[in-house]
């Protein structure tokens, strides 16, 4: 069962994220250099951090899957990557808007975090096609886990390389994360970060519950209507046969 604490988690998300955005709007002062525009930070950076942590979480689940061979770990890894990709799309779009607002271009190569995020996003976008193109269920899960582990190891290396490649061009314009934020901004930022992490957890649990429900319905259908009642599969997501 995945839906047990879903309601409590949803309420916590609602309160924290709304509170965080409210703090960002009314409590945190305007940035001296960037002015009002800097408020994008409170949605963009937490999204990015949470998406990356989601990828790492997926890699950990994939390791568990390879060690134990249980398909529920594969499902966890799959859902984590799925959610992180959605968060990642939001990161790229909000980052692009920020670049447009502060430099007048929709895309700049001087912002190493955003560039390396794009590379990571491109890599993980291949996860679903990889799953779809392998027929054998067991093999599909194993190969997907190998991919998740490789990509998880790639994330920090990629950040290191891209950041080093561009450090000479620009002084850091954005006061991201811990560096140089005013205390009141910091409070708002951390509340937003917590809210975003809770949102990720809620959506992850939500998706897991949905997958579990669908598996239960399929089992029920097989019991009541026999094999001829089974509907053809349309997705490459892992199946739960024995929960």
């Amino acid at each position: 069962m995945y839906g047990t604490r879903l309601r409590a988690l949803s309420i916590a998300t609602l309160i924290t994220l709304t509170g965080g955005f409210a703090l960002a709007a009314f409590y945190a002062p305007e940035d001296a250099d960037q002015g009002f525009m800097q408020k994008i930070l409170y949605v963009h950076v937490p999204l990015a951090i949470v998406a990356l942590c989601g990828f790492v979480f997926a890699a950990v689940c994939a390791i568990q899957h390879l060690r134990t061979g249980e398909s529920r770990w594969d499902l966890r890894s799959y859902v984590a990557i799925h959610m992180s990709l959605i968060f990642g799309a939001a990161v790229l779009i909000t980052g692009s808007i920020w670049a447009r607002a502060s430099w007048g271009h929709w895309w700049v190569w001087d912002e190493p975090t955003l560039v390396s995020f794009l590379i990571v996003f491109l890599l993980y976008a291949t996860y679903q096609p990889l799953r779809f193109s392998i027929e054998d269920r067991d093999k599909q899960g194993r190969y997907a886990s190998v991919f998740a582990i490789t990509a998880g190891a790639f994330v920090p290396l990629n950040f290191l390389a891209v950041r080093m490649a561009q450090s000479y061009t620009h002084p850091r314009v954005f006061a991201t994360a811990n560096g140089g934020l005013e205390p009141r901004m910091k409070v708002a930022f951390y509340v937003c970060l917590l809210g975003m992490a809770l949102l990720y957890a809620t959506l992850w649990k939500y998706e897991m519950t949905s997958k579990n429900t669908s598996a239960q319905i399929k089992r029920l259908r097989r019991r009541l209507a026999g094999d001829e009642g089974a509907l053809p599969r349309r997705s490459a997501s892992p199946t739960l046969e024995s929960t």
Binding site: E135, Y143, F147, N158, L160
Partner: peptide, 22 residues
């Protein structure tokens, strides 16, 4: 990774290029 999949020719560049960027 790609050899067992049907879309091998498509997957190899899609996987290898981002991985090789650093």
């Amino acid at each position: 990774l790609a050899v067992q999949s049907r879309a091998r020719d498509l997957l190899v560049p899609l996987l290898a290029l981002p991985l090789l960027i650093p």
